[in-house]
Amino acid sequence: MKLVPLGDRVVLKQLEAEETTKSGIVLPGNAQEKPQQAEVIAVGPGGVVDGNEVKMEVAIGDKVIYSKYAGTNVKLEDEEYIIVRQNDIVAKVEG
């Protein structure tokens, strides 16, 4: 099975949370902040969404940062994904 997003939606796979701080302090699981960085797994076709032309600006494999409370969490075959609208993605991470 695979997720195929519709319209301007994007399927993201969240990157792992940091387990230690930059100063070397190890964080227990419940103290780790949910990362807002993810990898793009699938991209919808874009097109006309809510009466506006939408050009998809992300591609599969891109690393992105998305809004903290955005999206719908989905679990499929023991993997967790987040489905967001493209406008919930605030930046691409390059380099």
Rank of each mutant, 00 (worst) to 15 (best):
I41C: 01
G7S: 09
G71S: 00
G47C: 07
I83G: 01
N30M: 06
V90K: 06
K63Y: 07
Q37C: 09
A17W: 04
E19D: 07
I83R: 01
G29V: 14
N73L: 10
T21R: 00
E53H: 12
E94N: 15
I60W: 01
A17Q: 07
A70K: 04
I41G: 03
A59V: 12
V58A: 07
N87T: 13
G71M: 02
D8C: 07
K75L: 13
K2I: 14
G46F: 08
E33Q: 14
M56C: 06
V26G: 05
E19S: 09
V40Y: 00
V4Q: 06
G29P: 12
A70F: 03
Q37I: 10
A31I: 10
V54L: 14
G51Q: 11
L76V: 09
N87M: 14
N52H: 12
P35W: 10
V4Y: 15
E53V: 10
S23E: 11
K34F: 08
R9K: 09
G95R: 06
D62F: 09
D50Y: 10
L6Q: 12
V58F: 09
A38H: 01
V84I: 13
E79K: 06
E39C: 00
T20P: 02
N52R: 13
D78T: 06
L6T: 10
G7F: 05
V43K: 04
L15Q: 10
I65N: 00
Q32E: 05
L6N: 11
Y69L: 06
E57S: 09
D62C: 04
T21A: 02
